Simulated assay, not measured.
Amino acid sequence: MARAVAVPPPRSGRVRGEAGRRGKRPRRRGSRSARIGLYAFLVTAALFFLLPLYVMVVTSLKPMEEIRQGGIFALPHALTLAPWRQAWSGVCTGAACEGVRTGFWNSVAIAVPSTVLAILLGAVNGYALSFWRPRGAGVLFAVLLAGAFLPVQVMIYPLVRVMALAGLFGSLPAIVLVHLVFGMPVMTLLFRNYYAGVPHELFQAARIDGGGFWRIFLQVMLPLSLPVIVVAAIMQVTGVWNDYILGLVFAGRDNLPMTVQLNNVINTTTGIRLYNVNMAATILTALLPLALYFLSGRWFVRGIAAGAVKG
């Protein structure tokens, strides 16, 4: 009979070590160079955007005597907030010398209804196109999508004629309605693509439980839409707040937004040009969109990751 020969077990530590050495790949030199190049690009891009903001801030905190001495990048020696106070409540924006605060409240009165109505209608449109799909939904969605790519300047004259015939030209409802029309395609696209990622079984279960169009929308879909609502709000508020040409044409003299008043401040040709006041007025005009972005940036990224801009 053959005698059984005991075979010693392999040394696991040695085998693992050899496997580990075989599995290790040499670190590529190009990866380090690529990382350095990436960081260099990011730092350059950050400086490109932050350097003008830095110049604006330090200039707005300097008196005019210090500005005339040069040194655009130098920190203020005699820090003052007088340019900010003058820009807010004392600088002339045309014939009136009430600062940009009037334009600020006009912009708030324009942006709030333009944003709320656009989000509500865009959510309803996206919900209907995603789940109910009425007859001609594809054609309607194509028309709305095409409207997102039409230049604003092409539609100004027809809208002026329509608003004049309706008796709304030069009023607050006119500018709100115009922003609502131009914001509707993008809002519908955002909500339609977001709802396309919601499981259809959830909608079918709500239908089995007896839910109708509005009940399912208000109790099921709308509570799930917080990320995309934040994305839509940031986009709409930023677009409405930064608008100049539509506010200049449709708002009328009593409802001019902050951007129009800022243009009147900076492009004035009478008196001494106050660079510190101009910079303070510019920062005040851009302050709300910047604050909105920084305060809700986390929700903005979450909304994009959830599929808000995916096709």
Rank of each mutant, 00 (worst) to 15 (best):
L140A: 13
V160E: 00
L145T: 07
L165C: 00
P134E: 02
Y195D: 10
V143K: 04
L165W: 08
L144Q: 02
T115F: 04
Q204F: 10
F203D: 11
L144K: 01
V178P: 01
V162F: 12
F131D: 07
G138Q: 04
L180H: 12
F203S: 07
V154T: 13
I119F: 05
L177S: 14
G210Y: 13
V154R: 01
F182Y: 14
S130R: 09
L145W: 02
A166I: 06
R161S: 06
R161A: 09
G138V: 02
I208V: 15
L165R: 11
V124D: 00
R192N: 04
A206V: 11
V160I: 14
A164R: 12
V198G: 06
I110G: 02
T115D: 01
V160G: 00
I119H: 04
H200D: 09
V160M: 11
D209G: 14
P113T: 01
V186W: 01
L144H: 01
L144D: 01
L121S: 05
M187P: 01
P113Y: 14
S171Y: 12
L159H: 10
I156L: 12
V181C: 13
F182S: 07
Y194D: 03
W132S: 07
I156T: 06
A174L: 11
A137L: 03
P173N: 09
P134T: 09
V154L: 15
V162Y: 07
M184H: 08
L168D: 02
E201K: 13
I208A: 06
F182M: 11
A123D: 00
L165H: 03
T188A: 05
V186S: 00
Y127G: 05
L202A: 09
L165K: 09
V143I: 14
T188I: 03
A123N: 03
R133H: 12
D209F: 13
W132M: 12
L177F: 15
Y194K: 07
V198F: 15
L202C: 03
Q204P: 00
F131H: 11
L121H: 02
A196T: 13
F131Y: 15
G197K: 11
A118G: 06
R192F: 12
N193E: 03
T115S: 06
M155Y: 07
L120Q: 03
A118I: 09
R192C: 01
L189M: 09
V116R: 00
V160D: 00
F182C: 03
A109E: 03
R161T: 11
L168Q: 08
R207H: 08
F141R: 05
L129R: 06
A164W: 04
P185E: 01
L180S: 05
F191Y: 15
R133A: 08
F182I: 13
V198A: 08
A109T: 05
Y157H: 08
R133Q: 15
S171P: 07
H179P: 07
S130I: 09
R135H: 12
R192M: 03
G138S: 07
A166S: 08
G122A: 04
A118S: 15
R135V: 15
M184N: 02
R207Y: 06
A148H: 03
G197N: 13
M155G: 11
Y127N: 06
Y195V: 09
Y157W: 13
L117Y: 10
V139M: 07
F131V: 08
V112R: 00
S114D: 04
Y194P: 04
Y127P: 04
L150E: 08
A118Q: 09
L121W: 03
A146Y: 11
A137S: 14
G197I: 03
A196Q: 13
A128L: 15
V160T: 10
R192S: 05
V143L: 15
